[in-house]
Design a protein around this nucleic acid. Structure first.
Lengths: 134, 134
DNA sequence: TTAATATACGACCGATGTAGTCCACTTTCA
DNA sequence: TGAAAGTGGACTACATCGGTCGTATATTAA
């Protein structure tokens, strides 16, 4: 019906893994990849995106790795998702991209009802934070 | 973040269009396609799927077309979506396809929290029926 | 200072899914 | 009987996804 990407799935698993460690402890991408059998390079990219959006902090070089950049309570699941999947914010094109790309925008009759559904889904993701999935 | 396909979008527009007509009135795919600028052949396929799942009834031959097969109140949006997108019922693979295809199934730590989100989304779609989007 | 270990990042590939098109067929009614 | 309608399979173009590869850069321990 509606699906989160593997990247998001890996991202959630990874950031949850980091969150289970004592605060400040650094975890390597390799450790996470090995633990869950996730392709290392792919996971790295995901972690880099999470880093860029400030959810986790990276430490380069030997004995480097990743740690949370804020307490778990301040990391809503919605942020994790949007950090990884930049675009695709809405369940239908018109809600996120508007008349430029949606071919039926002006005559579309389902925008307003879907806005409600959209809000519902967003609430589902934004009210749940990292501390609740640890 | 999460997106419905164009087919679903067209299906919602179409079935809503049918629902606005007096009960029992027959609407052709062409009329719908022309009204909303939707590719005719694509819309046809979508309507065929809605027919097969018993949400609308088709009438072949000249002066044929489509009409609702039940009152709008008995057509939840969730049924429209699953009729068109048969597969992909869950936000993550493991929730719909299980250990056969999910590579991290046994070690995945996010299944149970996501089940809650999943239920939330399903409720959003299943509690809204066609009569509410007309 | 150097080797090892780690992240950063762009290029690339194959599989899959999506949107759309084309065409032949069947059904029905005027 | 012919026009108008749905049925349905094959096909294409394109985007996205999942994954891989190679290289550069940063850090630290020896």
């Amino acid at each position: 019906m509606i699906r989160l990407s593997k990247k998001v799935e890996y991202g959630l698993i990874a950031i949850r893994h980091i969150a289970t460690k004592p605060a400040g402890e650094i975890v390597t991408a390799k450790e996470i990849a090995d633990t869950y059998g996730i392709p290392y390079e792919l996971l790295s990219k995901v972690l880099q995106k999470l880093t860029k959006s400030g959810l986790i902090a990276s430490h380069q070089g030997m004995r480097g790795g990743y740690a949370l950049a804020r307490p778990p309570v301040e990391i809503p699941v919605s942020l994790i998702i949007s950090a990884i999947e930049g675009t695709r914010q809405a369940i239908v094109q018109c809600l996120s991209e508007g008349p430029q790309t949606c071919t039926v925008f002006t005559v579309c009759t389902i925008k307003s009802p879907l806005t409600k559904v959209q809000a519902n889904i967003e609430r589902a993701f934004s009210t749940m934070n990292l501390s609740e999935i640890v």
